[in-house]
Structures are given as structure tokens and as C-alpha cells.
């Protein structure tokens, strides 16, 4: 079931939980929306422009979107018992039936991302079932407050990332559901590829304390490709509709972020 946004125009300061990047979004006149208790940027500009941007090169902040993780010798079995499909080797991810993603970060550590189109409330069911008995040899690793979560989408996403990351993230060497734990703009990051329909998309989780720095670095790297921030609605539209839209027009750039002029 898809969570529909409500109370569009909600103020982030009215929510106890908000992204570390909310000041950046306010500067861009973002339209926030309440996704059943989760506050996220729905859009910055016209939906048609944002969708075209997301297909070309768009950056979305998903830092408030539900996620979790677990670790321990018994973690793979516990996930399987909970009806999830854990990957069978490190640095791989598996798309779940509910649209989410489970990544294996090491032999005994897993990261769980909620699907963009799913109901955030469904995640609470998993959160409430963590074992309390240490003898089960699995413990939760929440990731919700320790990491920011960005999504870089678009046909040019790997080219923009190549400016900041030494690992080759192009399609020829970094496929669907591949995971790279590496340095991105000199901060540690977990990078996962989960395409949205036919559009490449990279989920990026990094230290929450350097979220503003990483956001600024990515936006700066995207400028030469005409990329700009996009809201959650643009990504969800891509996820739900595989049909590519009309080609991107260079004149339809983001209204508030312009490409850097050559000196």
C-alpha cells in the first residue's frame, strides 16, 4: 500500500523528527509533506520539471524515511524467519516484496531500507519484533539517527558520482543491488544501486553529522550536468512508471539552482 502525502506545506519545525538537511530545503522553498508521520520534501518545483530532472540527474533527501538494520551471528536466520530475504554474501542487496531493500554489509551485518512507495507505518511492525533475548545472537542497528540517506537518480548519476568516488559505479561494473562501502567526497558512505523503473538510482547513506557537507558536495558535482535537488514525489513517479517521459529540455532546469558559469 502506498503512503499518500498529506498536509503538504507542513513545517519541519513542527515535527520532532526532521532531516539534518531541512535548512537547505527551506532555503530552496521546498514543499514538505507528511507521509503518515514521516516528514519529507515532496517537491521543490513543478512535478513535470522534477520528474525530468530525476530522470537526468536529481538528488533527493530521504533522511527521515524509515530504515533499520541488524547484526549478529543469527541475523540472516532471524531475517528469514521474519519473512525477509537476506542477501547471501556481503556487499549485495536484495529487493524485497514490499519494495524495500536489504543490504548485507558484512557476514553478520544487515541494512534494511523501506521502499519509497511503501507505507512507512509497515516498518514499525519489523521494529517492534526485535529480539530482546541476547541468546538469539542478533541485535538491532537502527541507522536512523546515525546516518543521513540521500538518493541520487538519473542517467548521469554515475558520472556525477565519478567526480567524488574512486569506485567505478558505472553500469558496466556496478550492477543492480550492488553495494559499495567506500569514501564519497572524503566521507565514509554506503552506496546501493536500486533503479527506479528504467532510471538508475543510487542510495547513499553517510554519517549524519556531515550531511550538509555531503549534500553541498553532491549538488556542486551535479551542476555541470544540469542536475538539482528533487522531491520524493519525483522518485516515486519514476518507481511506479517505467515509461520514460519526454526528453529533458536544457531550458527546464531547476528554477533556483543554475549551472555554474565558466570563469
Amino acid at each position: 500500500m502506498q503512503a499518500s502525502p498529506s498536509a503538504t506545506g507542513a513545517s519541519p519545525t513542527a515535527f520532532q523528527r526532521r532531516s539534518q538537511l531541512y535548512r537547505r530545503h527551506l532555503d530552496l522553498d521546498a514543499a514538505f509533506a507528511d507521509y503518515e508521520g514521516v516528514l519529507a520534501v515532496a517537491a521543490y518545483a513543478d512535478p513535470r520539471v522534477e520528474r525530468a530532472l530525476a530522470e537526468r540527474l536529481g538528488l533527493a533527501d530521504l533522511s527521515t524515511w524509515p530504515r533499520s538494520g541488524c547484526a549478529g551471528p543469527n541475523a540472516p536466520q532471524w531475517l528469514a524467519d521474519a519473512g525477509r530475504q537476506p542477501p547471501n554474501r556481503p556487499n549485495k542487496a536484495v529487493a524485497q516484496e514490499d519494495g524495500g531493500l536489504i543490504a548485507r554489509l558484512s557476514e553478520q551485518e544487515f541494512l534494511i531500507l523501506q521502499g519509497l512507495e511503501a507505507d512507512p507505518g509497515l516498518f514499525a511492525a519489523l521494529q517492534g519484533n526485535w529480539p530482546s533475548d541476547a541468546a538469539e545472537s542478533v541485535h538491532p542497528l537502527p541507522h536512523a539517527d546515525s546516518h543521513c540517506w540521500l538518493a541520487l537518480s538519473g542517467a548521469l548519476a554515475s558520472e556525477a558520482l565519478a567526480k567524488l568516488c574512486a569506485v567505478d559505479l558505472s553500469s558496466r561494473s556496478f550492477g543492480l543491488c550492488d553495494v559499495a562501502q567506500t569514501s564519497l567526497a572524503r566521507v565514509n558512505a554506503i552506496i546501493l544501486r536500486q533503479d527506479l523503473g528504467a532510471t538508475p538510482c543510487f542510495h547513499i547513506l553517510s554519517d549524519a553529522s556531515s550531511a550538509e557537507y555531503l549534500w553541498d558536495a553532491l549538488v556542486d558535482a551535479m551542476r555541470e550536468f544540469g542536475g538539482a535537488p528533487v522531491g520524493l514525489e519525483a522518485l516515486r513517479t519514476l518507481k511506479l512508471r517505467d515509461r520514460p517521459s519526454e526528453s529533458f529540455s536544457p531550458t527546464e532546469r531547476h528554477p533556483r539552482i543554475q549551472p555554474r558559469k565558466a570563469p
Partner: peptide
């Protein structure tokens, strides 16, 4: 830059170690 092969993550720049 030198590369070092991490048994978990594969070849990475030496600056990551």
C-alpha cells in the same frame, strides 16, 4: 594512488585504510 585489496570490499584507495 596505491591500492590495497580489502578482503571484504575489494580493491580500494590506500587513503581508505
Amino acid at each position: 594512488m596505491k591500492l590495497l585489496n580489502c578482503p571484504l570490499n575489494g580493491p580500494r584507495n590506500i587513503a581508505e585504510f
